[in-house]
Nucleic acid binder design. Structure first.
Lengths: 196, 196
DNA sequence: ACTATATTCAAACAAACGTTTGTTACTATT
DNA sequence: AATAGTAACAAACGTTTGTTTGAATATAGT
C-alpha cells in the first residue's frame, strides 16, 4: 500500500461527492471505497464538511491552472483567442470530475467557486481579452465579460452535464469532443466578425 | 386556510428543494414550512422521493410552456429569432426557482430534465431554427443545435447561478436583467452575420 | 530496546432521517 | 342521525447519519 490513507480518502471523496453530492455521499461510503476507517475523516480532516472543502479547493485548483502560462512569465507573446479558450476547454474536459463538482457547488450557492476560482478565472478572461483585443473590441468592459460568459457557459455545461445535453438535443453521445471543438471554433468565428 | 395541505407541501418543497437540494431539505423542514404534519408527505405523495419527482415535473412543465405558441396552431407566422429566444429567457427568469431545480437535476444526472423537458425543448429550438432560417443557415442540422446550446447555456447559468456568476465576473449584482437583455441581443447579432 | 508520537481500528454515541402507526376531526352520503 | 371515507395529527418506529472514544498497532527518535 503505497498511497497514504489521507490521499485515498481524498480521492474516494472526490469521486463520490462528484457523483452524489455532499449529502448524498456518506462518510461510510467514502471510507468503504477508500478502505479506511470511518474515524479517518474526522482524524485527518476534522470532519466531513472540511473534507468537502478540501475536495472542492483541490478541484478548483485543478481547473485553475490554465496551461503553462503560469510558469513562463513572458506574456510578451499573446495567445490566439482560439488557443486561449481552447486551454480552458481542455482543462474542463480533462478533469471532468472537478467540473461536475463545480456544477454542484454552483447549485449550492458557489461558496468555494467564488472564493477560490475567481482570481484564476479573472486572469483567464483577461488573457482572453488581450487575445481578442486585436479587433476593435473594448477590453476590460462589461461587454467583454459577457462575451467570456457566452463562450465559457456552453463549454462548461457540455462537460459537466454531457449525457443530459446529448439526450435533450439528440446528439450522438460519443461525439462530445468533436462537437466541443466545432462549438469552440464557431463561437470564436462568431466573435471575430464586426458587430453592427 | 384556503389552500390545501397538498398544495402547501408542494409549494414549500419546491422552494426548499431548490434552495438546499433533495437530501438537504428534510421532510420535517418541508412540513414545518408548510404547516403540515410529517406524515403528510407519505400520505399525499407516497414518500419523499415521489414528492421530489412531482416538484421536478411541475418545474419542468413550468419551463416548458414557452409562450402562447402552444395554443394558437397557426405557425404560419414565424417568430423572429430574438423574439423566440427572448421567450425562453423570459421563462427562465420568471420561474427562477424552477431553473435552479433544473440545475440541481442536471448535476444529479438529469433524469427528470431529459424525460420531461426534451420534447418542448426540441420544439423550441426547432422554432428557433425556422426563425433563423431566413439566412442561409442549415436547418435541423447538428450545427443548429450547437447554436441553440451556445445561446441557451449562458442565459441558463446567468439565471440559475446568478450570484456566483456576478461575483466571479465582477458584475453588478442588481443588474441581471439588463445584462441578460444585452447578452441576448449580442448573441443574436453575432449569429445574424455571415460566417466565413 | 525503550519511549513517545502518530495512525488505524472496532465499537458506541447522540442526533436526525423517512416512514408507519393508531387515533382523532372533519365532510359528504344515506 | 348514523355511517363511510378522507384528512390531519402526535407519537414512536427502526435506520442511517457524522462524530467520538479508547484500545491496539505502527512509526520514529534516542
Amino acid at each position: 500500500m503505497n498511497i497514504s490513507t489521507r490521499e485515498r480518502v481524498l480521492l474516494a471523496a472526490t469521486r463520490l461527492f462528484a457523483d452524489s453530492g455532499y449529502r448524498g455521499a456518506s462518510v461510510r461510503d467514502i471510507c468503504n471505497q477508500a478502505r479506511a476507517n470511518p474515524g479517518a475523516i474526522s482524524y485527518h480532516f476534522g470532519g466531513k464538511r472540511q473534507l468537502y472543502r478540501s475536495v472542492l479547493r483541490q478541484a478548483a485548483a485543478s481547473l485553475a491552472e490554465m496551461g503553462p502560462a503560469s510558469g513562463s512569465e513572458d506574456s510578451a507573446e499573446p495567445l490566439g483567442a482560439e488557443e486561449a479558450l481552447g486551454r480552458i476547454l481542455r482543462r474542463l474536459q480533462t478533469d471532468d470530475t472537478a467540473t461536475r463538482l463545480l456544477l454542484r457547488d454552483l447549485a449550492d450557492g458557489g461558496a468555494v467557486a467564488v472564493e477560490s476560482l475567481s482570481p484564476p478565472l479573472r486572469s483567464a478572461f483577461e488573457r482572453l481579452n488581450t487575445a481578442l483585443g486585436e479587433d476593435d473590441n473594448p477590453r476590460g468592459t462589461i461587454e467583454s465579460r459577457l462575451l467570456f460568459l457566452s463562450m465559457a457557459a456552453p463549454l462548461f455545461l457540455m462537460t459537466a452535464a454531457w449525457p443530459v445535453v446529448a439526450r435533450a438535443l439528440d446528439l450522438q453521445p460519443d461525439q462530445r469532443e468533436p462537437l466541443l471543438a466545432e462549438l469552440l471554433h464557431r463561437v470564436i468565428s462568431n466573435h471575430n466578425v464586426e458587430i453592427p
